[in-house]
Design a protein around this nucleic acid. Structure first.
Lengths: 220, 220
DNA sequence: AAATTAAATTAGAGTTATCTAAAAAATAAA
DNA sequence: TTTATTTTTTAGATAACTCTAATTTAATTT
């Protein structure tokens, strides 16, 4: 089964929006994610249906097939491995990698990915803390909750971010919140959901709910 | 100036076939090189002419413009840097790199290429001995002649190969002819142009003219 | 110089992916 | 439960790249 670059991008978007096949996804959602028009999405869904990577009944909705799942995970694996390469080997900052990885993920060469994986020492997570599927598509995911859902005095470790936009990542750099940091919730403001945390037992950090929602924590 | 992947491939082919803008190139030659039909080439030449990367007068021929030269060299630079990466870092054999580099060369990211170049320690030649243009498109080319053009008793060093097909490169691996090897011409057969050489002062090697033509030597 | 052959180009059509505008179906509201 | 709204799909165009078949131009041969 061979997918075009566009098809891979749609499938990846569907995988992400459906949270790995769990939630249902709308045509409009996909259009927004891919930054295209709903009409284009409809057309592509028909094609993806014909290729049997999704099961599609028009007006009703879609479901990723096991084949589609496998292919989506393959693309995600490639994307995240390239991100690790860019950060670990080429000194990219974590907010600079997405766009380039978006291109690199479409390179077709199983040998290349095998070798890259080995060269990087079989990393389990990308620079944003997202798990890298192995060659069989298996994902070692850690149970994690958004920072805004933690209670006062609860402790944990930042393991990933939900939003990977350069704007958000640069903000985190600025305030010193990085993946791996130990944190403890000091206070929560009921009114607006903002939160105060202690980072690495030495630095107080105050942030809005909007920010906290995009920081994922492994609780201790 | 932005070129599509297809345009980059055509421009690269034109650059190679014209020997860097020296020789004239025919529509048929380009079609053969790109493995496409002459009709497609005509169409593309018109487009490349409009984009002013070549000067094109139909039925007469074409000439690369300085702009086209710069863009072609940029693509070649990327191709060869990726080849070095694949061989030096990912343990690819020199006959396995071409196809993958053909894809990687189209990744658009100036930062990526800068960083890759630095990471590889600013290599001057790719695994086949071809010079890598620097960021300004300057090429440090060495004067070199084909092995079949050398005279008896002449010595030199293998610096590059003309043919980069897996078949040819694997043959060279098998007989122990590698880039960097010191060689000396022991005998030449007038009848068929075949040649006998001494490799690294210890190994005798007999080869056809067809093979010798594709081995490039830096004479001492 | 006319006729033949070879090379290059145009015409017309197909594929992939996109769009706008219009129509159809499903959902929400009155 | 009819009406209104939102969502989704189809219809028809466009752009990039390719092809086959037909035509035009250039080069060769007689």
């Amino acid at each position: 089964m061979e997918l075009t670059t566009a098809e891979e991008n749609y499938l990846k978007a569907i995988y992400h929006l459906s949270d790995g096949g769990k939630k249902s996804v709308s045509t409009n959602d996909i259009a927004a994610e891919i930054r295209t028009k709903p009409a284009s999405v409809s057309d592509m869904l028909r094609k993806l249906g014909e290729k049997e990577v999704i099961q599609y009944r028009k007006y009703y909705g879609l479901q990723i097939t096991p084949l589609g799942m496998r292919l989506a995970l393959q693309t995600i694996r490639k994307h995240r491995l390239w991100e690790v390469f860019l950060v670990d080997k080429l000194q990219f900052a974590w907010d600079e990698v997405h766009e380039v990885a978006e291109q690199l993920e479409h390179i077709q060469s199983p040998l290349l990915i095998e070798r890259l994986d080995a060269y990087l020492n079989y990393p389990k997570f990308d620079p944003h803390g997202d798990p890298i599927p192995d060659a069989f598509g298996d994902v070692r995911s850690r149970p994690r909750i958004a920072l805004n859902e933690m209670g006062i005095d609860q402790s944990g470790q930042i393991v990933a971010v939900k939003d990977s936009s350069p704007e958000f990542l640069r903000y985190l750099d600025k305030v010193g919140a990085y993946i791996g940091a130990r944190i403890k919730v000091l206070d929560k403001v009921e009114f607006d959901g903002s939160i105060e945390i202690l980072v690495d037992q030495k630095k107080n950090l105050f942030m809005s709910k909007e920010v906290a929602k995009n920081i994922l924590i492994l609780t201790l």
